[in-house]
């Protein structure tokens, strides 16, 4: 009896997993399949899954309708600055909040965490006016400079990681005359590489996906990022489903590929922020 119940349970689990996987994957198949269809075939009802004739024209047209190469370059530039800025500044601050014992450290840490609860909308308008007064509107500085001043989320994540590095290592170096800067650079950073990769990866994805930031700060369409450029593409070519799906595929693919190469780093990042607090 028991085995039979187990058999049905197993079957139910497998059935649900397969059904859910299909539901979650279908939008992807629909995306890719549409991107290879001719305009005529897109209008066929009921829709067919296999494009026939199979054609790359949507990719060629979609990627030339907007200056895609330029937007890619702009986006990568912003992404790179964000990765460098985030890793440098967050690791410095996390070191100060975890490896150096000093009075007032805990107070500062809780103040830090408190800022995470503040919705960005509250500071959106004044930050805009600050950047305007600095003459930074329509430049990449508002989209990159803040990352060099650390963000609560990343510092929190790194601090948790730095605390797992044994104190004896830095203590021994200190006795040998190493400064905090030496300890940071030569002991903690090399040991924290996995965590640094994680926040770097998240900074990259965050900058790649950001829509509101470029929307507020960039006016000249030569300076647009991929996200903003795509959204503009949508307003101009809203009926060109084949091309829209082609460009969507192109911006999604790098992240999927990145994910398959960095799966562990990824999952660690998400779980470290969510738990182990």
């Amino acid at each position: 009896m028991r085995n039979q119940a187990d058999f049905w349970k197993q079957g139910l689990v497998y059935g649900s997993l397969v059904a859910l996987s299909i539901i979650f994957l279908l939008p992807f198949l629909w995306l890719v399949s549409t991107s290879f269809k001719t305009d005529k075939q897109i209008l066929v009802y009921p829709p067919v899954w296999i494009p026939h004739p199979f054609q790359w024209k949507n990719y060629a047209n979609g990627l030339t309708a907007v200056p895609f190469g330029l937007y890619l370059r702009n986006t990568l530039l912003i992404c790179a600055a964000n990765v460098v800025g985030t890793v440098l500044s967050s690791s410095l601050v996390a070191y100060g909040l975890s490896r150096i014992p000093w009075r007032g450290r805990e107070v500062l840490f809780y103040l830090f965490i408190g800022t995470m609860l503040l919705p960005p909308q509250v500071t959106m308008v004044p930050v805009f006016t600050i950047f305007k007064n600095l003459g930074w509107l329509d430049t990449y500085l508002p989209l990159t400079f803040p990352s060099f001043l650390a963000s609560a989320f990343n510092v929190f994540l790194l601090r948790q990681f730095f605390r797992t590095i044994p104190n004896e290592l830095t203590e021994a170096a200190r006795i040998d005359g190493a400064s905090e800067w030496d300890n940071y650079r030569l002991i903690v950073l090399p040991l924290a590489k996995p965590a640094l990769w994680t926040i770097g990866l998240f900074a990259f994805i965050g900058a790649w996906n950001d829509y509101l930031g470029p929307l507020i700060y960039l006016f000249d369409d030569r300076k647009y990022t991929l996200s903003l450029g795509l959204a503009m593409f949508k307003t101009q070519y809203s009926a060109e489903w084949g091309q829209m799906m082609a460009v969507s595929t192109v911006v999604t693919l790098p992240l999927i590929i990145l994910f398959f190469f960095t799966q562990r780093t990824f999952v660690r990042g998400i779980t470290m922020t969510g738990l182990k607090g």
Partner: peptide, 28 residues
């Protein structure tokens, strides 16, 4: 001295907190 070192390492965030949180909140 310890406090000085701690603050030095935290300085990116202290500046960021002033410029992107504290002043904007008051301004807002």
């Amino acid at each position: 001295k310890q406090i000085g070192k701690g603050l030095a390492f935290c300085s990116p965030w202290l500046i960021g907190f002033m410029v992107f949180t504290l002043i904007p909140v008051v301004l807002s």
